[in-house]
Amino acid sequence: MELRRHPFICELLSLDLPSSDYVVAGSGPLLAHGLRQDVSDLDVVARGDAWKIASSMAEATPPPSGHGLMVVLFDGDIEIFDRWLPGTQDADGLIDSAEFIQGIPFCPLSEVMAWKTRSNRDKDKQDIKLLRKYAGMV
Rank of each mutant, 00 (worst) to 15 (best):
R36N: 07
A54S: 13
S20C: 03
G93V: 09
D43C: 09
S40A: 15
S119V: 04
F106R: 04
G87R: 02
L73K: 13
K52R: 15
A91K: 05
S20I: 05
D122K: 15
R83G: 10
A25H: 00
V45T: 11
F74K: 15
A114D: 06
I101R: 14
G93R: 07
Y22G: 08
S56D: 13
P63G: 04
D82I: 08
D77A: 15
H33K: 10
P64F: 05
E59S: 07
G48R: 14
I101P: 01
W84C: 13
F81K: 07
D122V: 13
I80F: 02
I78E: 07
L94T: 12
L69Q: 14
L73V: 08
E79Q: 15
G48L: 12
E99M: 06
D96M: 04
E59K: 11
G28D: 08
L42F: 03
V24H: 02
L35Y: 09
E99A: 08
R36P: 00
S97N: 12
N120L: 14
W115Y: 15
S56P: 02
V71N: 06
L94F: 01
F100K: 10
I104A: 12
G26W: 01
P64S: 03
I80M: 07
S110W: 03
D21Y: 00
A50I: 12
I78M: 03
I53S: 04
R118E: 11
K116C: 13
G26K: 02
S65I: 03
P63K: 09
W115Q: 06
F74L: 03
G48C: 10
A32S: 07
S55V: 05
V71A: 03
D124L: 14
F74G: 03
D41A: 13
S20P: 01
G68N: 03
E59D: 09
G66E: 01
A58R: 11
P86A: 06
I101L: 15
W84K: 02
A98N: 04
N120S: 12
A91V: 08
L85H: 10
V24F: 01
D77T: 04
E111H: 11
V44M: 02
L31P: 00
K123H: 08
V71C: 11
D38F: 02
L31S: 11
W84M: 11
S56Y: 12
L85G: 05
I101S: 07
T61D: 03
S65Y: 01
T61N: 07
Q37S: 14
Y22T: 13
A32I: 03
I53W: 07
H33S: 07
P63R: 02
D77Q: 13
D122L: 14
D124K: 09
A58D: 13
G26E: 09
R121G: 02
L31D: 00
D77R: 15
V39C: 11
T88C: 14
V45W: 00
